[in-house]
Nucleic acid binder design. Structure first.
Length: 288
DNA sequence: CAGCACACCTGAGGGC
DNA sequence: TGCCCTCAGGTGTGCT
């Protein structure tokens, strides 16, 4: 599942292989891939055709490509299985090819949006004065953004009657963290996923944020190393990062700190992985 | 209004 | 062999 580091590597690939090229033609092969573009597939294609693509940006798991001279941008979310691939025009279509973008140049490559489970998609939106697509104005800055507001995040934790993993996955408080990196950061911070946030001290919040950044930077470092070689990461063919995970998916395997078998618990229609010894559950609270 | 459940998808994998 | 069930999970929506 693409989370922030994966999306950032895709963004870098787009900056290298797609920015500054002019769109010749767009094929939407599956309507669901543009479902967030309310005006429909034909409108999406028409509004891109003939326009030059600017430098890609990212916030959390969203990335966008400015469409020059239009005040709009192509917003992309990869969902759970989406990939943005740069392929030669001769390459055979992928089984789950949803959108193809051809360019008006002689480079010989095209941009493809491929998505098996169709949770992701592309859409065109007006941009706010600071260049952000209007529909993601509610998405918080991510922890790798130098303007991420750690104080605001901490105060939101204090204010909320929620638990820490819910807060980490709440993209309006902190963006870019998904189920995998949430479990990883909580394991590193020795925090149980159901710990209430209202009592977090500032040092505890800071330490957790540090672990979130560390685990993301580690993934980014791995993904960033091979990104120059080909289109390896922008096309995702080698899969997502070879993550060396300490918590996620390790049910029954020994905790890498204390050796206690890791556990998996159903949680919000997904799973939480944790060490029952390092990450003690909070005492039941009478606060409702 | 905050918090939470649920719909949306498809393919892999396990049980029988 | 094949059918059915479960699981994977980010986001927007709608309900309490």
């Amino acid at each position: 599942m693409p989370e922030l580091p994966e999306v950032e590597v895709v963004r870098r690939g787009l900056a290298r292989w797609v920015a500054d090229r002019t769109v010749a033609d767009v094929d939407v092969l599956h309507p669901r891939a543009v479902r967030r573009h309310i005006a429909g597939a034909d409108d999406f294609a028409h509004r891109l055709k003939g326009h030059r693509i600017g430098a890609p940006s990212r916030r959390g798991k969203y990335l966008w490509l400015p469409v020059e001279d239009t005040g709009s941008a192509v917003l992309a979310h990869l969902g759970m299985s989406g990939q943005l691939l740069v392929k030669t025009q001769e390459a055979p279509d992928e089984k789950h090819l949803r959108i193809r973008v051809r360019f008006d140049d002689s480079v010989g490559t095209e941009l493809r949006f491929v998505d098996q489970r169709t949770f992701g998609g592309l859409s065109l939106h007006d941009t706010t004065p600071d260049g952000l697509p209007d529909v993601i104005a509610h998405i918080a800055r991510d922890p790798l953004d130098e303007r991420f507001d750690a104080d605001a995040f901490h105060h939101a934790l204090r204010r909320s009657r929620t638990t820490i993993k819910r807060a980490l996955l709440n993209q309006s408080l902190i963006s870019g963290v998904g189920n995998i990196y949430a479990d990883e950061a909580l394991w590193r911070a020795r925090l149980h996923y159901e710990r209430p946030t209202a009592t977090f001290t500032r040092p505890r919040t800071s330490e957790l944020l540090g672990h979130v950044r560390d685990v993301m930077n580690a993934a980014l470092a791995v993904g960033g190393t091979s990104f120059d070689s080909l289109y390896v990461n922008v096309n995702g063919e080698s899969g997502y990062f070879d993550r060396s995970l300490d918590a996620y998916g390790r049910e029954g395997e020994p905790c890498r700190r204390c050796g206690t078998p890791m556990r998996r618990r159903p949680w919000m229609n997904r799973s939480s992985y944790f060490c029952p010894r390092c990450q003690r559950p909070p005492r039941p609270s009478r606060l409702s």
